[in-house]
Amino acid sequence: MEHPILFISVVLQKLGLPVPHGAVGSNFIEQICAPYMTYTWFVMAFLFFVIKVTIGDLELIPGRGQNFWEVVVGSMDNFFAENMGRELADRYFPMIATFALFITVANLIGLIPGFMSPTASLNTTLALTLIVWVTHHVIGFKMHGIGYLKQFAGPIPLLIPLMLPIEVISNLARIISLSVRLFGNIMAKETLLSILFLLAGGFFAPLPILLLGVLVSVVQAMVFVLLTVVYFSQAAEQAH
């Protein structure tokens, strides 16, 4: 795909660093300078500094910035507690909330010309998904010990040879469906936007897609987080 102008890549090229022309670079420095990597760093820096600047020191009587973040974090906390219980929500809130903020900002940043969504690369979404997938098994083993494996055996011992492959396949399908859905939606948005910009950018052709892009970005971040919560609570609950 013909990439539009990406500001960070242009800056890096002016600095003399090698920016790969394909999707992935050939050596280590090129791989680090690939657009999805640099924009991942950008999103992380953005989140860090914006929160640092808007909150500053925590005060008892919140200012405008602190008020905003209190609403965001408070509503996320409520949402998690509703869906997976207070105890689990308290323990895994930092991780899931970070995912939610990161994915939302990463999705939305691609709507600004000159930026790209890091989540439009399968590498980013697969990394996020693998963290979630490993964590939900760790939660399961922590809660039930070795008895967690019984969740994969089905209800009747006689049916284990039949149920085990089914459970394993449907569990592995989670990795693919979670990562590819986020990647596919965001990549489609990015591709569509860049094509419409190239074809008829002067006639505001991308405008409706920009509007839809905001919806898709927020909804996909929500879906990812909600599925994470569902997987965590399923791993934690007693075997059915």
Binding site: P165, I169, S170, L172, A173, R174, I176, S177, L178, V180, R181, V218, V219, M222, V223, L226, L227
Partner: peptide, 22 residues
Amino acid sequence: FVHLLANYGHVGFTFATSIVLG
């Protein structure tokens, strides 16, 4: 709306993925 999308939006994709994986 968002809740419904989150709950049921992934059904088709997961179904297809399972079959392809098997």
